[in-house]
Simulated scan of single mutants.
Amino acid sequence: MAETTHERVGEQSVVHRREFDARPEQVQRAHTTAELFAQWMGPRGSRLRIDRFEAHTGGRFDYTVEAGGGEAGDGEAGGEWRFWGSYHEVVAGRIVHTWELQQEPGRPTLEVLEFRELPGGRCALGITSTYASKAACDAMVESGIDGGMDEDFERLDEALAQLAR
C-alpha cells in the first residue's frame, strides 16, 4: 500500500507526496474529470455533490462533501463541507488552483499539484498547499487533514485500479 507523506515547509506551507500505480495522465485525469473526482474525494461513506466543475485554466469549482452520521464506522458525526475555488493553470503535469472552505471563508489556500512520471508507468504526485497565514496552516495541520488526504488517496488508488481493468 502506498504511503502519503506530509511535510511542513516554512510557516504557511505543507508538501504532500504520494506515488500511484498509474500513469501521470491518468492521475491528473482523476483530478480534472468530475465523474472520476466524485469517486474518491471525501471520506468513505460520504457523497460528493458537484455544483460546478470546470477543470481548465480560468475555470471554477464548487462542491460539497456530504458525510452521513458515521456510516463508515469511523465515529464521524456526519456533516457537510463545501469547497469552492478557481483553476489558475491546468496543463499537462500541473494544476494550480485556490480553494476556500465554507466554514472558513476569506482564507483561500493556494495549491500546486505536480504529476511526475516514474519508471514502470507510475506517477509521483506532489502537492504544495500554501495557507493564508501561519495560524491557518497550524489549524489545518492540527485538524488531522493528513489522515483525510490519506483516505482520499486510498480511494483514488481504488478508482485508478478500476480504470485499468
Rank of each mutant, 00 (worst) to 15 (best):
E3P: 00
T5P: 06
H6G: 02
V9A: 08
S13C: 10
S13G: 05
S13Y: 01
S13H: 09
R17I: 03
R18N: 07
E19Q: 13
D21A: 12
P24R: 14
Q26Y: 06
A30N: 12
H31K: 09
T32M: 04
A34V: 12
E35Q: 01
A38Y: 15
A38D: 07
A38W: 13
G42D: 06
G45C: 09
G45D: 12
R47S: 08
L48F: 01
R49V: 14
E54V: 09
E54A: 03
G58L: 08
F61P: 01
F61M: 10
F61R: 11
D62T: 10
T64P: 00
E66I: 15
E71R: 10
A72Q: 10
A72S: 15
G73F: 12
D74E: 11
G75Q: 12
G78F: 00
E80S: 05
R82I: 11
W84K: 02
Y87T: 03
A92S: 14
G93H: 11
V96I: 15
H97N: 12
W99D: 14
L101K: 01
R107P: 00
P108G: 06
E111P: 10
L113R: 06
F115P: 11
R116T: 02
R116P: 00
G120F: 00
G120I: 02
G120R: 01
G121I: 04
R122A: 02
L125P: 09
T130K: 11
T130D: 10
C137A: 14
G144T: 07
D146K: 14
D146M: 14
G147T: 09
M149W: 04
D150W: 00
F153K: 09
R155D: 08
R155A: 12
A159Q: 14
A159M: 15
A161K: 13
A161F: 01
A161W: 00
Q162R: 15
Q162M: 10
L163T: 04
R165V: 15
R165I: 14
